[in-house]
Write a protein that binds this DNA or RNA. Sequence first.
DNA 1: GTGGTCTAGACCACA
DNA 2: GTGGTCTAGACCACA
Lengths: 133, 133, 133, 133
Amino acid sequence: MNWDFDGNLPIYLQIMQTIKTSIVSGRYGPGEKLPSVRELALDAGVNPNTMQRALAQLEQEGFVFSQSTAGRFITKDRQKLRQLSQELAVQYIRTMVESILALGLPPEQIPLLLEEYLAGRSGDRPASPTGPR
Amino acid sequence: MNWDFDGNLPIYLQIMQTIKTSIVSGRYGPGEKLPSVRELALDAGVNPNTMQRALAQLEQEGFVFSQSTAGRFITKDRQKLRQLSQELAVQYIRTMVESILALGLPPEQIPLLLEEYLAGRSGDRPASPTGPR
Amino acid sequence: MNWDFDGNLPIYLQIMQTIKTSIVSGRYGPGEKLPSVRELALDAGVNPNTMQRALAQLEQEGFVFSQSTAGRFITKDRQKLRQLSQELAVQYIRTMVESILALGLPPEQIPLLLEEYLAGRSGDRPASPTGPR
Amino acid sequence: MNWDFDGNLPIYLQIMQTIKTSIVSGRYGPGEKLPSVRELALDAGVNPNTMQRALAQLEQEGFVFSQSTAGRFITKDRQKLRQLSQELAVQYIRTMVESILALGLPPEQIPLLLEEYLAGRSGDRPASPTGPR
DNA sequence: GTGGTCTAGACCACA
DNA sequence: GTGGTCTAGACCACA
């Protein structure tokens, strides 16, 4: 996973984001076992408690479940996973909209820019998702 | 300015991004003087050469201009500034689109999600462009 | 046995409770020999005198009997054991009722809540009698 | 508040229970300010982090809310408080039912014992809620 | 080994 | 001062 923290948000929230993205992108499939808290903490370079907190929160949100001695697993609930995709998509939308509004552009222009981009994109090379910030 | 670099892109490009955002957001107005290369480099914690490269590139793109001894200034060309807004907006759009496609959602769904978000946003509190929480 | 004392009640009474529960739950059957006072005291971490007092009281209530040199035994009187079940059950009922009334709920609601709970319970997993989780 | 922990349940859960009981019993009214995390931790004799965890959980359940620099407050949502009464009542019911079933009595007998107790109680002195365990 | 809990202690933003 | 976050490190039950 791509552990890359900045100082703008608590680390455990950023961890949750990273894991959510990993799940949705198919890095971990439904029912698949996650590495142990300690392993993940080591990998991410954070304290096991911080990782534990992130995972406990993900568990409470229903995206993973734990079997006391066996470890933690991605939920098998496909509906839940679809919900996660939507949630992340809305986050991306929100970040984009608020950033553009901060530029001083009017909201009505956003759908136009989107349409234009999508039109120009069809047939093009995939284009790597490296934008601003 | 919010200097916050990650390892995914050359630093001078990230610097350009940051400065562009500062200009468009009104942090620096048309014709306003920028701090010196040395000051900016110190502030950003980078090598002056790196900062120099970023500024030279911005100058070449026409967003700043230099007066031999007086320093560098934001362009007074309003048209140019509008163009910059558009450019950044398209970048935000691209990041969003590619991120959502990476989730496995179909492109057709993006305009729908956008419309939904904009509708739900009207009348709401301003909402800062941060992550979930 | 589950020796777990709090400061709200004399310890010998709490010991009696614990032993009564052990008897009724089948931990000790009718006619079965109890460990010696010293053993029990050691196990519970109390003074032998305190344990002695609890056992003497239990004997007076007819739930155990002693044979001069052989030790103490659970009564063989099935009727007596049924009575003990009832007694403990009423205690549980009382604790529950008084706790709920302390919440400010009206007494009439208690039978309704009970009925509801029993209905929801049929067919469910056994459910251990612990707190919330 | 009556901080009295046993080893059967995590302390933070017991803290939550204690605070919930305090709220429902009227010790703290709607909108009333709770002592600070540090004060409560000192009072309860636990680590501030443990108290923090209990309060964060209560906040997530909607029974308290925090104002960053001002402290934490009991919710003003009367509906939420009624829900809390019910929740605690059901807990008491459950503990009672499961304890009685553990004695080997049949479930059908519980409503009868309850009715009997309530009948015998009318007009009696309040009777202190000290039962078994 | 696994998740889970707890303590001690530091540091942060906010106002 | 207030809530919130993070680390280091210990200990526990479960199997």
